[in-house]
Amino acid sequence: MKIAVPVVDDSLRMAGNAGHTPYFAIFNLNGGMFKTFALEGLRANPKVVVGEDHHDHDEHHTCDHDEGDVEHIKAHDTMAGTIEDCDYLVVKMACKNTAKSMSNVGVKLQKYNGIETSASKVLSELASQFK
Results as ranks from 00 to 15, higher is better:
127 A>G: 11
110 Q>H: 08
106 G>M: 06
41 G>I: 07
125 E>P: 01
59 E>T: 11
97 N>M: 06
40 E>V: 10
73 I>V: 15
16 G>M: 07
77 D>S: 11
44 A>K: 14
6 P>C: 11
87 D>Q: 14
106 G>W: 10
93 M>W: 01
22 P>S: 07
30 N>R: 15
55 H>Y: 13
80 A>P: 06
15 A>P: 00
117 T>Q: 14
104 N>Y: 08
108 K>Q: 11
106 G>V: 04
20 H>K: 15
69 D>P: 01
47 K>N: 10
32 G>M: 14
123 L>S: 02
80 A>Y: 01
30 N>Y: 13
70 V>P: 00
128 S>T: 13
119 A>R: 01
62 T>R: 15
62 T>S: 15
11 S>C: 06
25 A>D: 08
28 N>H: 12
75 A>I: 03
48 V>G: 00
104 N>K: 13
61 H>C: 03
73 I>Q: 06
101 S>E: 03
65 H>I: 11
32 G>S: 14
31 G>Y: 06
69 D>W: 00
70 V>T: 09
7 V>W: 05
72 H>Q: 13
89 L>Y: 05
126 L>W: 03
123 L>P: 00
43 R>K: 10
120 S>I: 08
38 A>Q: 13
71 E>S: 13
67 E>A: 15
89 L>E: 01
13 R>K: 13
5 V>S: 06
83 I>Q: 03
87 D>F: 07
54 H>Q: 08
109 L>T: 03
123 L>V: 07
25 A>P: 08
71 E>L: 14
81 G>Q: 08
32 G>T: 14
38 A>C: 05
19 G>R: 01
61 H>Y: 06
79 M>N: 02
83 I>T: 03
77 D>H: 11
47 K>F: 14
72 H>C: 15
86 C>L: 09
44 A>P: 09
15 A>F: 05
8 V>M: 11
86 C>V: 12
123 L>A: 04
32 G>N: 15
26 I>F: 08
4 A>F: 05
32 G>A: 14
15 A>H: 07
88 Y>W: 14
39 L>D: 04
